[in-house]
């Protein structure tokens, strides 16, 4: 085991930010840590990183841990190289680890430039370079793809895959579910301070996904606004939006599936075609965060 959380709780005065969170991460595992804003993700990560003291519970960490919590911070008047040099000295990591880390994130050319001149994406990559210094066994990454362009996101994904293949355990928090789905075979979903789901996406879908499903409806272009308005007003529709390809995508409970056809007929909207989508992390996530939290 690389990291074990045993019944961790954190109270800020009367507010319970995290309640009884427990999970275990195995060496080399990449785990997505998901939840809406204010769910307790960052508080949990800060507790693991030693920045916040848990009100109760235990955290057991095996090996060296490195963390990038929320947006990466630096001394803006120092260069990227000097920032890493400072962090390396602080943690007793040799100077020879700095250049390979910069090389790995593609910042060698800008290493002598002040961080104040870096773009958000470059800061994000420098933050990752800092976490990779000294080959940590556990990596905590909070929104590592924030501010990255599509190419940067793909590079970050490969980087995370790379470190994972070297046996590094990664706990990855992100709001980009499609991205998490590509990197993390296992996800932990937290809401209102409690773990709502923990497992592989497909396993979770079979446990939770039976209720919420995602559907794609194809209607003539002339009827799209009318269909969007009609479906949006239905209480049984969880979410509906127009996909750039021109089709309507909606989330609804499975037992409401048979309400679609009568509604379309009643609104006199022709239906050219429809399909239910395969299970996705988004469905699992929505199901997990919308289910009632037991007190």
């Amino acid at each position: 085991m690389s990291l074990i959380l045993e019944n961790i709780s954190k109270n800020f005065r009367s507010f319970q930010a995290v309640q009884g969170v427990s999970f275990t991460l195995e060496p080399g595992e990449v785990v997505g840590f998901l939840g809406p804003n204010g769910a307790g993700k960052t508080t949990t990560m800060r507790m693991i990183a030693g920045l916040i003291r848990p009100s109760s519970g235990n955290i057991k960490l095996k090996g060296r841990m490195s963390a990038m919590i929320e947006e990466p911070s630096f001394y803006p008047y120092l260069s990227g190289l000097e920032n890493l040099r400072y962090s390396a000295s602080l943690t007793g990591i040799g100077e020879n680890a700095i250049l390979p880390a910069l090389e790995r994130v593609g910042l060698m050319e800008r290493r002598e430039h002040r961080v104040s001149s870096y773009s958000q994406g470059m800061r994000q990559r420098l933050g990752l370079a800092r976490t990779l210094l000294g080959n940590p066994e556990v990596l905590l990454l909070d929104e590592p793809t924030n501010g990255l362009d599509p190419q940067g996101v793909a590079e970050m994904r490969e980087l995370i895959r790379g470190v994972s293949s070297e046996g590094v355990t990664v706990l990855l928090s992100s709001h980009i579910l499609a991205e998490v789905e590509k990197i993390a075979p296992r996800v932990i979903i937290i809401n209102k301070g409690r773990i709502q789901a923990d497992g592989r996406v497909r396993e979770l879908f079979s446990q939770l996904g039976s209720e919420i499903i995602s559907m794609t409806l194809d209607v003539p272009a002339d009827f799209t606004p009318q269909a969007l308005e009609m479906l949006g007003s239905q209480p049984w529709v969880q979410k509906v939006y127009l996909h750039p390809s021109g089709v309507l995508v909606l989330n609804l409970l499975q037992h409401d599936l048979d309400q679609i056809a009568p509604a379309m007929v009643h609104a006199r909207i022709p239906l050219l075609g429809f399909r239910t989508d395969v299970e996705s992390l988004e469905q699992v996530y929505l199901q997990a965060v919308t289910k009632k939290v037991q007190a």
Partner: peptide
């Protein structure tokens, strides 16, 4: 004070090295 201004506490007070030493 500078650590607060640049939000660096979350970087330099991560478990290792320990807080007292920092």
């Amino acid at each position: 004070g500078e650590e607060r201004g640049f939000k660096m506490w979350k970087v330099i007070l991560v478990s290792q090295p320990n807080r007292l030493n920092v």
